[in-house]
């Protein structure tokens, strides 16, 4: 059990009085895709920055690739690929030059970098833009270039902080596809996201963070099984008194449910049966949707529905 790629014990990050990460324990095994899921301000980015060795650990222990970030930051970073939340591409350089100079920061020889740059540009489908300045690229292209750049040193561990935030669906799917390919090549991925579909698509295992703490841990399937039901029924009402009546009826049963601004959610193993029973008790919503439970349900149940900024 000691050959984890990353291991945090009571890992803590404080900024003066503010506790961003509050003593979390986690480990990432070689070859897995591991996710930190949580709302804004949960401590995901602070955790990622500590793992990337660009932010000192305040308290607790952290080992990355078996080394100590406090004393071996440079050696660790040499073997990491980091995709920060905000692109830090060099806007004064072209697509190709961005890859070339980044490779030089790792001390790689020019011929090696040139070869890898060509490979990586085709990997992220930017070959035909290789001579363009970076500020001419779309958001999705910039993101892909940032990912390509993070791979220039052939890292065994790639850290992605919200890799697809702000991208349109096509761009997002292309990024997922590429990340999935990396995973199949045996690269260990660690990512943060607040997109449930992203976590479900990419992560073998994930932790849900809230307020600097880990509130749940497991595979996407396990988390859904533990913290939600198999299915969720969504009921919508046009008239407010219909809705109030329905809510009163549902409250009298012991069915787990939630009253949201626009709909009522009912957590159940069998949605169809539940809808039938409700119909017999006199609940007649305008629209009914029976769907599989998703990580989103887990996430919202665990981290609450209040907007956190």
């Amino acid at each position: 059990m000691s050959d984890a790629l990353i291991e945090g014990k009571k890992l803590t990050k404080r900024f003066e009085d503010f506790v961003a990460v509050d003593g979390i324990d986690f480990r990432v095994e070689p070859g897995e895709a591991f996710g930190f899921l949580g709302p804004n301000g949960a401590g995901k980015t602070s955790t990622m920055r500590m793992i990337s060795c660009v932010s000192p650990v305040t308290d607790g222990e952290l080992r990355v690739l078996g080394m100590n970030p406090a004393t071996q930051g440079s050696e660790i970073r040499a073997r990491l690929g980091a995709v920060p939340q905000e692109d830090t591409l060099d806007l004064e350089l072209t697509v190709r030059e961005n890859l070339l100079i980044y490779g030089r920061y790792f001390g790689l020889a020019r011929p090696v970098i040139r070869e890898r740059a060509d490979e990586l540009m085709s990997f992220v489908q930017l070959t035909d833009r290789s001579g363009d300045r970076v500020d001419e690229l779309s958001g999705g292209m910039k993101r892909r270039l940032t990912i390509a750049r993070a791979l220039i040193n052939r890292p065994e561990l790639v850290l992605l902080d919200e890799p697809t935030t702000g991208l349109d669906p096509q761009a997002r799917h292309l990024v997922w596809e590429r990340l999935y390919q990396l995973k199949r090549q045996g690269v260990t991925l660690v990512l943060t996201t607040h997109y449930m579909d992203e976590a479900e698509q990419l992560c073998d295992r994930l932790v849900i963070m809230d307020g600097g703490l880990i509130v749940a841990e497991g595979s996407p399937r396990q988390l859904i099984d533990q913290h939600s039901t198999r299915e969720v029924v969504e009921l919508r009402f046009d008239a407010d008194d219909d809705r109030a009546k329905a809510l009163a009826l549902i409250s009298r049963t012991d069915v787990p449910h939630e009253n949201l601004a626009d709909r009522i959610l009912i957590y159940t193993a069998d949605g169809e049966t539940e809808v039938e029973q409700l119909g017999r008790s006199g609940v007649h919503p305008e629209t009914v949707l029976v769907r599989r439970s998703s990580l989103e349900d887990v996430f919202l149940r665990l981290t609450g529905r209040t907007l956190e900024e």
Binding site: R77, A78, A82, P84, Y105, G107, N153
Partner: peptide
């Protein structure tokens, strides 16, 4: 920031 994500 980009440089500091590398061994620099």
């Amino acid at each position: 920031d980009a440089m500091l994500a590398t061994p620099l």
